[in-house]
Design a protein around this nucleic acid. Structure first.
Length: 139
DNA sequence: GCCAACGTTGGC
DNA sequence: GCCAACGTTGGC
């Protein structure tokens, strides 16, 4: 299984709202960047993604899971096709992992979050995944 | 097809 | 509120 990181401004779409959608999940709309789109298209059902709050909080607050693989973004013009993936909230981080903490951890210095701060859907390596989970108090 | 100008994102 | 990074647009 693959690992990812998805970013959202909590003003627009927060972890709380995601959690409120329950097991059915919700479409991750509004991606308008080709690199991010390619990443969405690579996601498989059951893949997991860190849910990161940008701007406000600047921390990984939970883990989301892909419940439906990519399909056309209903919020895009049909002539200008983009894709969405449905995510459900899988589990919260016992202890949110802040951007500062990620920067302070040498093992995470190559994370896309630090290198491509503007990319809203990013891949995460298995090692990075494990490290962040540990920092977040997950087993 | 190049590149300058411009807009957007996101950390500070 | 500022500014760096970076994607997009448009003139040539």
């Amino acid at each position: 299984m693959a690992y990812w990181l998805i970013k959202s401004e909590p003003d627009v779409w927060s972890w709380d709202k995601q959690t409120a959608k329950g097991a059915k999940g919700e479409a991750w709309t509004g991606v308008r960047n080709h690199t991010a789109k390619l990443n969405l298209m690579k996601m498989k059902k059951g893949d997991r993604a860190f849910f990161y709050h940008s701007n406000i909080g600047k921390e990984i607050v939970g883990i989301a899971e892909v419940v439906r693989e990519h399909y056309p973004d209903p919020t895009a013009e049909p002539r200008d096709p983009w894709v969405v993936v449905d995510f459900k909230a899988a589990e919260p981080m016992p202890k949110p992992v802040t951007l500062d903490a990620i920067k302070a951890e040498p093992k995470l210095k190559d994370m896309a979050l630090l290198k491509q701060s503007r990319l809203s859907v990013q891949p995460v390596t298995a090692d990075e995944w494990k490290t962040v989970c540990k920092m977040g108090g997950k087993k």
